[in-house]
Design a protein around this nucleic acid. Structure first.
Length: 465
RNA sequence: GACCCUAUCGUCCAGCGGUUUAGGACACCGCCCUUUCACGGCGGUAACACGGGUUCGAAUCCCGUUAGGGUCGCCA
């Protein structure tokens, strides 16, 4: 267990410096995109105000909460770049953590809950019924002054009218969500609860609980939900509901974070493309919209492209090489400079990182695999002589750089009374196997004279059968 | 069913009583540029859910209807 909770709160230097927000996921084995956005908004608010972002794992359901499930969440948040100031460091509930308000796993806080329940019991604010412990809920409508939604008055529903009290400890002794959530927020000194709107109705219970513990509740900000493109609610099974879809689908974290920021929040000045630091600077709770938003994959794709092309060279190289390796291309077998130059020709061209293997994989295969759709065109009789002339010109090229290669090709085209196209197309297919790809002249420069001549020879050989 | 939230182009946002022939972005459709594929440039189609009020004047305020979402668990 990490640091004790008895450490007194430190004095707050500035009025706005004491914001404490948290993301409190339940490890179910996957991180929902909506949960990721909730985490992002909390993180943004903490960073904007100079407050603390806390990660707390709500692993009360021992049966389905595994360490692997926690890792999914930790990895998802890390991938997005949402670092937490307090919370677990590993997926081991009894392992190390940072922060002095731990433990940050609910499974490690049972004693705390037990004491709080006893206090409630002894004050007559809770009572036992059928082996469970129930909380004596207020019968009055509860007013919620929500930072996003505004003032909401929640009266009892007709069902609650019958019995407003609700279970806080099950008959098996396990405390329920409403209870532990409130106790933890209280103990951890959470000042703002930023969460999905699906919790808005529950908030009445939470406020009543806070008051029963003798404290005023934190500020609440209920953010709208993310819906499917067709407007239905996004559930586990839906495409793109899980963070892994983006992590493995060729998206840059920068783009996903940017897109998520724009769902339900706006800087009001029509800017769409943001670096995360710019969002941190402008983000605030009052600008959050009140209505749900549909997830638009096309727009995310566009943002992904925009971010990919703006990525700093090394970062682009890192992400692209990773995508190539994942697809089975062993870039490590090649010169670092060659790899960098090769990847460089895909710069500003990739829509998704997962397009990299198909786009520049030819650099990392010793023999070219001709696209079956292009093979017949390449076999056109006139191509033999053209490729032969091209080979001669390139074998004798004084320098093997893009500009020289281009002028040699164009010179040859003029000589043969052709436009560049009839030479460019077969040559591209010969060298890469495909009809489209990086700039032909630059790709040849990267490939180098030896590979270019070899690849031309390989195709020429198919003409002489 | 009860209660709560919401409602501007297909989608995401701007608009917060008059400066609006409702603006931007994605997507879509033309044209241009071009060594492929892209990018880019120019132009275009496209919305205030409906009905009542309030007001000299409403996308903007109020009420209702409709629609969508959420909550009513010994799930979280």
């Amino acid at each position: 267990m990490c640091a004790s909770r008895t450490t007194p709160a430190r004095p707050q230097p500035m009025p706005n410096m004491n914001v404490r927000v948290r993301f409190a996921p339940s490890p179910t084995g996957y991180l929902h995109i909506g949960g990721a956005r909730t985490a992002l908004f909390n993180w943004l608010y903490a960073r904007h105000t100079g407050g603390k972002f806390i990660l707390r794992v709500e692993d009360t359901d021992a049966a389905r909460n595994t360490q692997e499930a926690v890792d999914v969440i930790l990895n998802g948040l890390r991938w997005l770049g949402l670092d937490w100031d307090e919370g677990p460091i590993t997926s081991d509930a009894t392992g190390p953590c940072k922060g002095d308000r731990g433990p940050y796993y609910q499974s490690q806080r049972k004693e705390l809950y037990r004491r709080r329940v006893e206090a409630l019991l002894s004050h007559g604010l809770a009572y036992e019924a059928d082996g469970a412990v129930k909380f004596r809920m207020t019968r009055e409508p509860v007013v919620i002054d929500d930072l996003v939604v505004g003032r909401v008055v929640r009266p009892l529903t007709d069902r609650e009218e019958l019995d407003p009290d609700f279970v806080i400890v099950r008959s098996d002794g396990e405390p329920v969500f409403h209870l532990v959530n409130v106790i933890d927020d209280l103990e951890m000194g959470i000042t703002h609860v930023i969460r999905g709107e699906d919790h808005l109705s529950n908030t009445a219970k939470h406020i009543a609980l806070f008051r029963a513990f003798g404290v005023e509740p934190p500020h609440y900000a209920h953010i709208p939900l993310i819906l499917n493109p067709d407007g239905s609610k996004m559930s586990k099974r839906d495409q793109g509901a899980s963070m892994t879809y983006y992590m493995e689908g060729g998206y840059a974290p920068e783009a996903v974070v940017n897109y998520l920021s724009l769902l339900g929040w706006s800087s009001k000045d029509n800017q769409e493309i943001f670096q995360i630091a710019q969002v941190v600077e402008r983000f605030d709770l009052p600008q959050i919209l009140r209505h749900n938003a549909r997830f638009d994959h096309e727009k995310l794709n566009w943002l992904n492209f925009e971010h990919l092309r703006k990525l700093e060279g090394d970062r682009f190289n890192e992400l692209t090489v990773h995508a190539l390796n994942k697809a089975g291309y062993e870039t490590a077998k090649y010169d670092l400079a060659y790899v960098k130059a090769a990847v460089g020709t895909a710069r500003e061209k990739l829509k998704k990182l997962t397009d990299a293997p198909g786009y520049i994989g030819f650099y990392f295969r010793e023999s070219v695999e001709i696209d079956p759709a292009e093979a017949p065109k390449l076999q056109a009789p006139e191509n033999e002589a053209r490729l032969h002339r091209l080979r001669q010109a390139y074998a004798a090229a004084p320098q093997f750089d893009a500009a020289t290669l281009e002028s040699l090709l164009k010179g040859l085209a003029t000589e043969l009374g052709l436009k560049a196209g009839p030479l460019v197309h077969p040559l591209r297919v010969t060298l890469t196997g495909k009809s489209s790809g990086p700039s032909l002249y630059h790709l040849m420069e990267v490939l180098g004279r030896e590979r270019v001549l070899n690849r031309i020879d390989a195709v020429l050989a198919t003409f002489r059968r």
